[in-house]
């Protein structure tokens, strides 16, 4: 591909050996993100989304985790064999992360300003503290924190949830990285604040032409943000597609289920559509297609063989023996 590819992950596998057996958290995932593109990784809790993101950042503790990847390229640079020290230089300056729970991600005994300073000081050894302070205040201002000079001196507990999340966004964008991974950035927030934080995130991404990997369990979050969507289930990608087409016509029954589960304002019915049961235990994954015990279209074939991730249509692929919406293909 051209130099437009920002992140290129090939065949990423992560396993956790436990006394109860081997947990295959991520089973061979291919992921690409172009420059300035917003890509969403969607799936339920326990499907391996967060492990994937941590593996890309090389934040997984090995051991206990075992990670294997054919290639992990960021902007043409191979990260696979980098030592921890070298990786430290990449993190924050080239790729950074926004975590789900801002209260846990921030240091409670340090002012938020000093925490943003740290990002600058770590990556630019010549920077003076005073310069870092100015840069931090500017960073806070950019993400829409009111009176940033005062907030600079606040501790995390003095800020509201939405403000804390903004601080994390400011930190992530501080060194203008090329890729940002946002792991459920709005799950802990109210709907009103969620909408605000998403608009800040999307604005910042557009302004800096950053690539964004957005990880979430809620498809409605990504509907108006993502360019492309990967749907993950039990450690495997089950569908990948440009966002618009995915919402128009989901091809995998799991995607259909996720879409149906979202409560909508336009709904008139009084019963919610649900996907039965929950994600299978990673210790005892079903045979064949992992989704077949919960799938309403499942046939005998589904219980026997795992379907391949087969291309179907423009930029789309689906891992299913009986993809939905065949008529579209014809």
């Amino acid at each position: 591909m051209s130099g437009q590819t920002m992140l290129d992950v090939k065949n990423l596998k992560v396993i956790f050996p436990t006394p109860g057996g081997i947990i295959r958290a991520v089973e061979g995932i291919d992921l690409t993100i172009d420059r300035g593109e917003c890509v969403a990784l969607v799936g339920e809790s326990g499907c391996g989304k967060s492990v994937t993101s941590q593996a890309i950042m090389k934040l997984l503790n090995t051991p206990p985790a075992l990670m294997q990847v054919d290639s992990l390229q960021l902007d043409g640079q191979e990260l696979k064999d980098l030592s921890n020290k070298e990786m430290q230089r990449v993190r924050g300056s080239k790729v950074s992360m926004i975590f789900q729970d801002a209260m846990v991600a921030l240091n409670p005994v340090m002012t938020v300003g000093r925490q943003i300073d740290e990002v600058f000081l770590c990556h630019d050894k010549n920077m003076k503290k005073e310069e870092a302070r100015k840069a931090s205040i500017k960073a806070l201002e950019l993400v829409g924190v009111p009176s940033p000079a005062q907030r600079y001196k606040d501790f995390p507990h003095q800020l509201s949830g939405g403000m804390r999340q903004r601080v994390l966004i400011a930190m992530a964008f501080a060194c203008q990285p090329q890729l940002i991974i946002a792991d459920e950035p709005t799950t802990a927030l109210d709907v009103t604040i969620q909408a605000q934080v998403l608009s800040v995130l999307s604005e910042m991404q557009k302004k800096h032409r950053t690539s964004l990997l957005l990880i979430t369990h809620d498809l409605s979050v990504v509907a108006n943000m993502a360019d492309r969507i990967y749907v993950m289930y039990s450690g495997k990608i089950v569908e990948q597609s440009p966002a618009y087409e995915l919402f128009k016509q989901p091809r995998h029954p799991y995607t259909e289920g996720l879409l149906g589960a979202i409560p909508k304002l336009s709904d008139e019915h009084h019963e919610f559509i649900q996907i039965p049961d929950s994600v299978p235990s990673p210790l005892h994954k079903p045979t064949g297609c992992y989704f077949h015990p919960r799938c309403r279209y499942a046939t005998e074939e589904c219980a026997k063989k795992m379907p391949p991730l087969a291309p179907c249509g423009e930029g789309r692929a689906v891992r299913c023996w009986h993809p939905l919406g065949k008529e579209v293909q014809a």
Binding site: V191, L198, S199, S220, A223
Partner: peptide
């Protein structure tokens, strides 16, 4: 404002939404 804050998955007609500013 609360109704506007509900995220929509209707990708065909994107409404111009008025986001509520500030916090409680």
């Amino acid at each position: 404002a609360l109704l506007d804050a509900v995220l929509d998955i209707d990708v065909d007609n994107k409404k111009e939404k008025k986001l509520i500013q500030g916090e409680l």
